[in-house]
């Protein structure tokens, strides 16, 4: 009994370390998805997470996701705990900086690995533009990401774009920390 507990703890510690490893290379920011990798609790908050505060190395390793875990998951599950990371933008900007390009490039690699997936790139904004203006700003962000994905070899037939302006903030706070998380291009898998 005691031994079984120790083995279990070791196992947990190991999986937790593995699970933590990847997000840590990509970003510092909001805690990446919880420590236990197991079945996601029903009421976890929505997906997009880490804000790449500092610049990221040019070659971000593709997250090591095994076909088994991904291929069998429903769209809802995939999008709740998405293999895609959001790309972030500066205020009133739709330009992808180095960090943003690295993230989009990693997302492009995932799309190439799952060639049947169709992805909608959603452009989102912080609350510092008006609701109306941000519809156009989000549109430019989504299109900027799509353009870069296509340049990286992803077929435009697999890409949709949509702007939600500031209608769906990731963080409803009123600080720069919240705003920086909300200025994002969010990847949603719409069919697979």
């Amino acid at each position: 009994m005691k031994r079984a507990t120790i083995v279990l703890m070791l196992l947990l510690a190991f999986t937790a370390a593995c699970a933590k490893k990847k997000p840590a290379t990509v970003a510092s920011g909001p805690p990446p998805a919880a420590t236990a990798p197991a079945p996601a609790p029903a009421a976890t908050p929505p997906p997009p997470p880490p804000r790449p505060a500092e610049r990221v190395e040019d070659s971000v390793p593709v997250p090591a996701i095994s076909e088994d875990t991904i291929g069998n998951r429903s769209l809802e599950d995939l999008n709740r705990d998405s293999p895609f990371k959001p790309a972030f933008f500066d205020l009133d900007s739709s330009d992808l900086d180095d960090a943003g390009r690295a993230i989009v490039s990693a997302n492009a690699d995932i799309m190439k690995r799952y060639p049947t997936w169709v992805v909608t790139v959603e452009g989102h904004c912080d609350e510092r533009g008006t609701a109306e203006y941000n519809l156009a700003l989000g549109e430019k962000r989504a299109v900027a990401v799509k353009t870069y994905l296509v340049a990286l070899g992803v077929s435009p037939d697999r890409l949709r774009t949509v702007s939600y302006g500031k209608e769906f903030p990731f963080d409803t706070g009123h600080t720069e920390s919240a705003w920086s998380k909300n200025r994002r291009a969010h990847f949603v898998i719409t069919s697979k």
């Binding site: 929505p46 809802e76 209608e167 719409t190």
Partner: peptide, 9 residues
Amino acid sequence: GPVQNRDVK
């Protein structure tokens, strides 16, 4: 849709 927790308007 595939993304949760979004309010209808």
